[in-house]
Amino acid sequence: MARAEWANYHNNSSSGIYNNGRGKLCSYKRSTLVVCSINIVVALFVLHSLYTSLYRYPYNDSTNAFRYTSDQISKMKESIRIRKESEPTELIKLVEELKKEFLREERVVEVPLSLKQKIADELLLRLRAVNASGNSTVQREAVEGWRKEKLREVRLLTSGKPANSTFLPEEAGVLVRALGSGWAEFSEEIGLWIPLQIIHEEHDDKPEGVDDLDREILPGRQLPPECHAELHTDYDGAAVKWGLTNPKESAYDCCMACLDQAKMAKPNEKKCNIWVYCPSETGCYSPDIYEHKNQECWLKYAEQPKLNFKDIYPDSYRSSHRNVPVTVAWVAGVVSV
């Protein structure tokens, strides 16, 4: 009986140990499966997140990665609208129109030669009508009055309004700038050069013996009485010093060069007794083949000095020669040697 009980106890103990071991073994496998399942789920989630991010923000379009919200977009549109409404549109439009008009006036337009001749003829008639050949102030006032009158006429013609003008409508377009902002250059082109004149109204400080023509302003020092300067004058004579290669800074320097040459000349050489100078920045006209430029100084000799031209070129001469200006631009003088 005791042996049988012991055997039974032994069997029950062994069975319990076996059952406990199998229970432990089943619990370990279950834990491993749970952990593996969790790892797989996490891995799948990470892969899904990476795939989704690559799909939404591709590497070659990173600039479009940021997206504005609808509220931000509406605020930006409102800001742009307010900025445009606050712009001075009328002022901007006016400035643009002024720019176009300025560029249109500044555009260089070549005035035909026939039209230049026509303008020069009208200016000559106006100067003769006021008997202004000997007074530069009267000349200037007559020319300025003519210019303003013709400028009003051509502006009426360009606007399509009727005007009693000596110019044709097709000529008015090129004359707007020539008679307006480009008058200084155009007057030089047609040879119109009127020097300034100083009038001493309150007191007369002119040195004794100085001719009235010396009161008109010329570049450089004031000419002394022995130069006998004459504006708008061109004297003939044999060239003692070639003017094309003898530039001088002023009429004063040209006269002094003539006086110095006469003093230093040898007994068998011609002594300068005529000096002719070009003060005009655009050059001076002369009836020869050369182009005479500013600051040319001609030293001449003539036993009996003879005028080439004085004050204004004659109509008969201008009608038979092309490109002749209205007035004589040279300054000259006959000195005693």
Rank of each mutant, 00 (worst) to 15 (best):
A163M: 04
Q139L: 03
Q139M: 11
V143W: 00
A132N: 05
V154F: 03
E149I: 00
V130C: 05
L157M: 08
S136H: 11
G173P: 03
E171C: 03
E141R: 08
N135A: 10
E149D: 09
S165L: 02
G134E: 09
P162S: 15
E144L: 13
G160Q: 10
T137D: 10
A163L: 01
Q139H: 02
L157E: 05
A132C: 04
S165V: 00
T158P: 04
E149V: 00
E153G: 01
T158N: 12
Q139A: 11
A132Y: 05
S133A: 14
R152C: 08
L168V: 07
N164V: 12
L157I: 06
E141M: 09
E171M: 02
E141G: 03
L157V: 06
P169Y: 05
V174M: 08
E141D: 06
V130H: 04
T137G: 08
P169F: 06
P162I: 12
T166S: 15
K161W: 10
L151H: 09
Q139S: 09
R155G: 01
R155I: 09
S133V: 12
S133D: 10
R155D: 05
L156F: 07
L156K: 11
R140H: 07
P169T: 05
S133W: 09
L151R: 06
A142P: 04
V174S: 08
L156D: 09
V143F: 00
S165A: 09
L168G: 02
F167L: 10
Q139G: 07
S159D: 13
S133M: 11
L157D: 06
A142W: 04
N131W: 04
G160D: 12
L156Y: 06
K161S: 14
A172S: 07
K150T: 03
L157W: 06
V174L: 05
F167V: 07
N135S: 12
L156H: 07
A172F: 01
N135Q: 12
E171P: 05
T137L: 15
G145S: 04
E153L: 03
A142R: 02
E144H: 11
S133P: 01
A132W: 04
E144N: 12
V130Y: 06
P162T: 15
